[in-house]
Design a protein around this nucleic acid. Structure first.
Lengths: 125, 125, 125, 125
DNA sequence: GTGGTCTAGACCACC
DNA sequence: GTGGTCTAGACCACG
């Protein structure tokens, strides 16, 4: 369910956050679904419980999930909407890079080609 | 000449590297131009000299500049070409975000639109 | 009769205790009244019977109710008086917040105003 | 500078948060002031660095301070205003308790007396 | 020196 | 079983 890169620059807890959001965005995780418990996920990924706790706490802070102590942690009703809003920021990020490439003289066609490639890659998958 | 964000996540020395590359890519810094001295820049930006030294060393390692001990540090002839190659990495970064947006269900048109907007913005400027 | 918040920080059994005390304090539950059975309440609130057992045991320990095995659980004669004494703790809690607001520089008038508002609100009701 | 209660119900990291806010509210900590380093405070209070890190992270999330990695952590310009806004919530909390006491039949005078006592206590101190 | 992240392992309360 | 908190100690990058 999760894929961890232990050698990259991005911290593990952030990878968990990103991937959980992606699972919500893609509809794999729906409102009311229970997230894997800290302990279970800790064992599955060989990641320290504290690290996962940190990730989950942040997701909770963002309103994507809510914890019922003693019962588990569940995806909220607002999760899909909130993740959707987050995507706009990602799009702005992409646009910022595009502006930079433009300033550096890269032709538009090449950038557009990359975007199409990204979407084509997904269709094939 | 440089704009430093002391509180962001990206280290200062990396900001120096990025901005220098951008100055080269956009033609503001040309072959043979002298880079500001560590001492001078240190004072101007209120940044630790060691930090600037680290940035300059990395730029040298990448072949973008070369130090003439006692005379200063100068932009190399290959600098423009080398920076151009570096842009491919940025393009890959953009593509990665595009893939993510695709996975989350954002329509292609919106992403392509952002890219065009980025380039359009530049044309108007 | 009871309102449970499964996601808040205060444990469910404590919510049961608090609300029962409030029912007694406000006169809705009187001496000799029977409390809902663990089984019935468990079903009504979808709460684990153990949790309710814990709440009721604590109420008994405080002398607010007493169980007649096989017959049910009843509010004691001392209940009202005992709950009244418990209010002192709440008052101390209020005083603690007031001290804090004082330390932070909030004017007394504003705090006194809030208290009056609280009582005014009740009179109108 | 900080006073920790290791046996109370409120977690240590929350005590740190509260007390820091109080220091800002009372003007002892001002804009641009450096907060004690995680390590230093850890030693002074005999509290684990992680616990303090957690507290500081939360303060940062609330916009009360900002970290400059490698340099320290500093009180933001908005801190005083933000803490002020937080006080309103505390006041509402107090009002809620007052309403509860009212419902339970405690006379207004007693509550007002407690508030005055809280403010009087501060004046004497 | 600073902050940031992570591990290992423990304890607690709650359900 | 669940989440929440804490300790001890480590490592890294940055300045």
């Amino acid at each position: 369910m999760f894929q961890i890169d232990r050698f990259g620059r991005t911290p593990i807890y952030e990878q968990i956050i990103d991937q959980t959001q992606r699972l919500i965005a893609s509809g794999i995780l729906k409102e009311g679904d229970q997230l894997p418990s800290v302990r279970a996920l800790s064992q599955e990924l060989s990641v320290n419980p504290n690290t996962l706790q940190k990730a989950y706490s942040e997701l909770e802070r963002r309103g994507l999930c809510i914890s019922a102590p003693g019962n588990g942690r569940f995806v909220t009703a607002d999760a899909v909407r909130l993740v959707g809003e987050g995507l706009k920021e990602r799009l702005e990020e992409l646009q910022k890079i595009a502006e930079e490439l433009c300033a550096a003289g890269m032709p538009v066609e090449q950038v557009l080609g990359s975007v199409n490639a990204a979407y084509g890659k997904e269709i094939r998958a």
